[in-house]
């Protein structure tokens, strides 16, 4: 599904060179729920951005569904994301001018899905995240948990094969965290999607099939939880 090969990322800050990722290789399997766990500054977010094609690696390749992400032009990457990738952000990133329904249907809008069809799909998504009553609400009228549920609905609405979640519960309290996490996991399992989580929170990582510990730009260790035997470091 996702094949990370010898990825290295070096930032140049002034005269100084900062190695964010040293040399990372990893295979993520279809339908796997994989969590990258690390402290802030470990390079886990950089890895996620590189996987999503938002950043280019200094060295190495990322192959998603047989396509080399780092070789694509920005235009191609955007198209690729539109078709294959869903995103859940830490700070929700809902468009403030749009209602919950419009926010959820946004990825479908970008794909050119007709309005009545995308409204129907978005409605179903909102229903399954338990926000049926809030479809006409603007983000400012909702709590953080509700907003993140809208964000999840948006990430899953176009049924992308891969969903990235960057600290999805970073701004939520523990009770809501639990709700949001199980919601995401259920959805990923239901639609047979690959879910890639990035977090610094050990308790979140416990939800995943596999935990990849990242430390100073390297994979420190990989912890598997039964189901996905045989997957590991290349």
């Amino acid at each position: 599904m996702v094949n990370i090969q010898n990825v290295r990322k070096v930032y140049k800050i002034g005269e100084e060179r900062v190695v964010a990722l040293n040399d990372i290789s990893l295979k993520i399997h279809p339908e796997e729920i994989c969590c990258f766990l690390g402290t802030s500054g470990s390079g886990k977010s950089t890895l996620l951005n590189i996987m999503a094609g938002l950043e280019k690696p200094t060295k190495g390749t990322i192959t998603i569904q047989g396509k080399k992400i780092e070789k694509m032009s920005e235009k191609e990457v955007t198209k690729f994301r539109q078709k294959n990738i869903g995103f859940v952000f830490q700070s929700y990133n809902l468009l403030p001018s749009l209602t919950a329904l419009e926010n959820v249907s946004l990825p479908l809008t970008f794909r050119g899905v007709p309005k009545n069809m995308r409204d129907r799909i978005a409605m179903e998504m909102l229903e399954s995240v338990g926000l049926k009553k809030h479809i006409a609400h603007k983000p400012s009228q909702m709590s953080g948990g509700q907003q993140q549920r809208v964000g999840i609905a948006r990430a899953f609405v176009s049924k992308p094969p891969i969903v990235f979640a960057d600290e999805p519960t970073g701004n939520l309290d523990s009770k809501t965290t639990e709700e949001v996490m199980s919601l995401m996991l259920n959805m990923a399992r239901e639609y047979k999607q690959t879910l890639i989580l990035v977090t610094h929170d050990k308790s979140i990582a416990e939800f995943a099939d596999r935990i990849v510990y990242i430390l100073d730009g390297n994979i420190e260790k990989v912890e598997e939880k039964g189901l996905m035997k045989g997957a590991g470091i290349e």
Binding site: A52, L54, E74, K75, T78, K79, R81, Q82, K83, I85, F87, F89, N93, L95, P96, L106, P107, F110, R111, R154
Partner: peptide
């Protein structure tokens, strides 16, 4: 930020 989100969500350039 909005433009960025739109781009990440797959809005054509």
């Amino acid at each position: 930020r909005e433009i960025g989100v739109m781009k990440v969500l797959g809005a054509d350039l």
